[in-house]
Amino acid sequence: MDFGININGDRPLSLIKKGALTAERAGFSNIWIGEKPKFMHPFPVAAAVANTTTRVKIGSGIISPLLNPCNHIIGGYAVLREAYGDRFIIGLAPGDKWGLREIGVEISGMKKRIENCLRELKRQGFEVYIGASEPGLARLGSTVADGLLINFVKPEYVKWALNTARDKARKAAYGPSLLLPDDDHNELLLIGAATVAAGSSVAFQREFGLERWVKELRSILRRRDYGELWKYEDRLLEGFTLHGDIDDLRIRVNELRALGVDQVIFGAPLSHNIRSVAELGEGLQSL
C-alpha cells in the first residue's frame, strides 16, 4: 500500500514546500497537487515541490483538460519533466463542473476531450491516472490509463466507482482528511467534504439519491455560508472524509485495501498541519 498527501495551491509556497519536504521525510510516496481556479496553478506549485524534494512522485490531483487546453498540459509537464526528471503523474479529470461553469468553461464533449488528452499524454510517455467520478471514466481509466483516482473514501462509494474498472488498474482513493485532534482545521475539513460532494457526478448523485442535498450544498458553497455546513456534519464527514486518530485512520486504510485500493491519498486540510503530516507518516509505516 502506498500513501499520498494532497497539497493545494491555496497557501503560501513557503508552507507548501515545508509540507512537501515533511511528507517526503515521513515516508509518503506521492504528493498530489489539486487544481481549483482560485488556487495557484499546479505548474508553479509542482515546480516548487519538485525543487524542494528529491524522490517523491508528484501528481496533479487533478488537472482539468476542460480548463487547460491539452497541449498546455502536455507542454507543462514536458518542461517539468525536463527540469526535474520523470517524477510526475498526471491525474486527469473534468474537475468540478459546477465550479468550471462559474468561470465560463465549456464542458460539452467532456468524455471525448478527456479521452483524447489521455491518449496524447500516453503517446508522449507520461504516467496518467484518470479521475473515476463516473462509470465511463472509470472504464476508460482502467483500460487506457495507468490508474484511477477515486474521489471517494467511503467503502460503499468506492465499490460503486470501481464497479466498471478492470482489476489490473492501479487505484488511488482520495478524501479530505484530518488527523484528530485538530481544532484549527475542522471547518476546512467540512468545506472539503462539501466541495467533493458538490462536485460529484450526476451518475453518483442518482445512484445514492443525493441530488437535492448536493443542490443545497452548492448553494451553501456559492454563498460561502460555511456555518450552514455544520448541520450536515455527520453526513459529510462519514461520507466523504478520512478523519480520526492514527488508529482510526489505519482502520480506514485497511478497509480501502480490502476493496483493492493500492494508494490512499490524504487530502487537504491534513497537509495544513505539518505536525500531522509527520505523525501520520510515522503511524502508517507498519501498514
Binding site: 505548474f43 508553479p44 515546480a47 507543462g76 517539468l80
Partner: peptide, 10 residues
C-alpha cells in the same frame, strides 16, 4: 511547445 507558465516556474 513547452507551456510558458511551467517554463517560467522552472
Amino acid at each position: 511547445g513547452r507551456d510558458v507558465f511551467a517554463y517560467l516556474s522552472v
